[in-house]
């Protein structure tokens, strides 16, 4: 897979950065041919993953670091959201819709990531943090970046 662009963000685990991360990734992704609804879906997926790192991974501690890495090929966005938090004990269970370890929450974060992206992969272990990898193709596969108008 040949990347035409890559970027990395590192920011503190504070809730205001959820908006920062999704807007930054969507702006980055818009370099290839996504539709506006595609970009909205990417924003939801990023919000869910980054929100999870803050709430679950770091238990809302505001002084930890969340990393977001994004890369573009001509027709695909790959995103990696990474924390060094508590990790997930049972990944299959965590991925089930409506499963949450917090009664106040709906347990739909992974369901949204799964529905809105083409692939979702979770690497995690208790005490070892969590890495969520997602990718999404553009509908047409046609790109404007680097081509003549």
């Amino acid at each position: 897979m040949r990347f035409i662009n890559q970027m990395k963000l590192e920011f503190l685990s504070i809730p205001a950065n959820v908006a920062f991360a999704r807007v930054a990734v969507a702006a980055f992704a818009s370099q290839i041919d996504y539709t506006l609804p595609d970009l909205e879906e990417i924003k939801v997926a990023v919000s869910e993953a980054v929100g999870n790192s803050i709430i679950h991974g770091y238990g809302n501690a505001p002084d930890r670091v969340v990393k977001v890495h994004a890369a573009l090929t001509m027709d695909t966005l790959e995103i990696m959201v990474e924390d060094e938090g508590i990790g997930i004990e049972d990944i299959d269970k965590a991925l089930e819709p409506a499963f949450s370890t917090d009664d106040e929450r709906l347990g739909l974060g992974f369901m949204f990531m799964h529905s809105f992206m083409d692939s979702l992969q979770v690497d995690s272990a208790p005490g070892r943090g969590t890495v969520v990898k997602m990718s999404k193709r553009t509908g047409t596969g046609v790109t404007r970046i680097g081509t003549e108008q």
Partner: peptide, 13 residues
């Protein structure tokens, strides 16, 4: 313009 699951939780509550 945007909602994520955190806010859906607030609505459901």
């Amino acid at each position: 313009s945007f909602v994520d699951s955190s806010v859906l939780g607030v609505l459901l509550g």
